[in-house]
Nucleic acid binder design. Structure first.
Length: 483
DNA sequence: ATGTAC
């Protein structure tokens, strides 16, 4: 496999894409020559295992690809709906993890004073629980409604921008707010996860999950789209990155153990015992798909409630005139059915974001003409991006990257990055310091930018391949991390 | 990423 990577380096074909012919099938890699050359050859081993799942129709990597459990983060993997497979390993354990962006009526100049940014972060800490809550929190929200109905299961008071179909921007400006499922499967999960997941509603979680206060810098190439979306230069935005917490974890754990048994009974498997998969029409496959949808419901509500808490904090600091309208909410860890031409396909995206171009029928109404926003987080302290799909994205089933892509393990990052380097990347002590919440900087060092590829290079690669364009950069002013 | 077992 290492040999193959070197061969490809020696005969570059196109600048931003190449097809890698592996023993088990073709892998489509969307990465610039320099990013491709820097890939760990293990990502090709992993693709070769994934391609051994029967009937795979398409498999690709985005430029931020890196090794995960069973499957790389940065994978798009597709089967036919009629006789295909579903893989909990390809979806990954943080089912429904994704991004949400809100636009405020503040300008970055309003937050020029570092003391005011700190005051806002402290207010967010008061309203946004960073860890599991005591019993009784959100007692007016029923978890069984949330996991069955997603955003439609929320009481009206949590939809502050109106509840009529025309005005409910926080319910309609989402990739999907409600995933229908066969509710009988919910009974399979242990009772304890209901309590835990209820107490975790509206919390960030740990790792790379965050809420950031950012400001918008529009890209001149797409100023028309930016303005149609209501963006303006210097506008303060709130970006949220979180997933389905313990609920998704329990779904993954329970279904994985059932699928392991099924695979053993049927003699299914690849070279990697950690790579789990089930026929879509099998009992364990159906169970996984339905319970995965419940986790997608949980995740979209979780991000909505995080935004709700930050809105309350903003109003406490800036008064009731503070606004936080929803731009978009979309996922990067999931699998679902999509129509592509005449084909009905089951599309897995793990660390991959869908970016539909203008005019694509699957865009939500608000973005039918422009294409929808695709939200790509940078690493801590660096820019995040608001992208829009291009027609060329069709070649990759409209998948683009999901972030910078980790290049260094948490332990290696702690070993290699000094506190001085990290403090300097966060501009600590200067007037434009990126203010972080109560966690000490030492405890955040494994999320430092040095643990990640350069997100700008990842974005250049996606743009160069013709998959998407940059509508705006979002630059950090303050970051809130979970525990 | 997460809960849990070590």
């Amino acid at each position: 496999m290492e040999r193959l990577l070197q061969d490809n380096e020696q005969r570059p074909q196109e600048a931003y894409y190449r097809k890698v012919q592996l023993p088990a099938g073709d892998l489509h890699v969307y990465a610039s020559d320099s990013l491709f050359a820097g890939l760990d050859y293990k990502v090709l081993d992993m693709a070769n295992n994934n391609l051994q799942i029967p009937g795979n129709r398409y498999m690709s990597y985005t430029p931020d690809v890196h090794v995960g459990v069973g499957t790389c983060i940065g994978t798009t993997a597709i089967w036919d709906m009629a006789d295909g497979y579903v893989s909990p390993s390809i979806v990954g354990s943080d089912i429904g993890c994704g991004m949400r962006l809100h636009l405020t009526n503040l300008h970055r100049d309003d937050l020029r004073d570092v003391k005011l940014r700190r005051k806002l972060v402290k207010a967010i800490e008061r309203h946004l629980p960073v860890e599991e809550q005591a019993r009784g929190h959100f007692s007016d929200i029923r978890l069984d409604h949330i996991v069955r109905k997603g955003l439609s299961g929320l009481p009206k008071k949590y939809v502050p921008d109106g509840y009529t179909p025309r005005k409910a921007t926080s319910l309609t400006r989402v990739e999907c707010g409600k995933f229908g499922l066969d509710e009988s499967y919910l009974e399979r999960l242990p009772e304890t996860v209901y309590h835990r997941a209820h107490r975790q509603l509206g919390t960030l979680g740990n790792g790379n999950h965050f809420a950031e206060i950012q400001y918008v810098e529009i890209d001149e190439d797409h100023r028309d789209i930016a303005e149609q979306w209501g963006l303006s230069d210097g506008q303060v935005a709130v970006m949220i990155h979180s997933g389905s917490r313990a609920w998704g974890g329990a779904v993954n754990q329970y279904c994985s153990s059932e699928i392991v048994k099924m695979m053993s009974r049927r003699g299914l498997g690849t070279a990697d015992p950690k790579l789990l998969f089930a026929p879509l029409d099998s009992e364990s496959g159906q169970m996984y798909v339905n319970l995965m949808y419940s986790a997608l419901n949980y995740a979209v509500v979780n991000r909505h409630l995080i935004a709700y808490a930050i809105r309350e904090a903003g109003q406490q600091v800036f008064g009731s005139k503070f606004e936080m309208s929803t731009l978009y909410d979309l996922m990067h860890n999931y699998a679902w059915e999509e129509k592509h031409g005449k084909n009905t396909l089951f599309v897995h995206r793990k660390g991959a974001t869908r970016a539909l171009p203008p005019g694509h029928p699957d865009n939500p109404d608000a973005y039918a003409e422009t294409g929808h926003p695709a939200l790509i987080p940078g690493s801590m302290g660096t820019s995040s991006y608001i992208m829009v799909g291009k027609p060329g994205g069709q070649s990759n089933y409209y998948s683009i990257c999901h972030g910078a892509g980790r290049i260094r393990s948490r332990s290696a990052t702690k070993r290699l990055v000094t506190m001085d380097q990290f403090r300097s990347s966060m501009r600590i002590g200067s007037d434009d310091e990126i203010v972080v919440n109560q966690r000490t900087l030492e405890s955040l060092i494994d999320e430092s930018p040095q643990a990640y590829k350069d997100v700008d290079q990842i974005i250049d690669s996606v743009v160069g391949a013709g998959l998407a364009g940059v509508v705006a950069k979002c630059k950090p002013l303050a970051a809130v991390k979970g525990v």
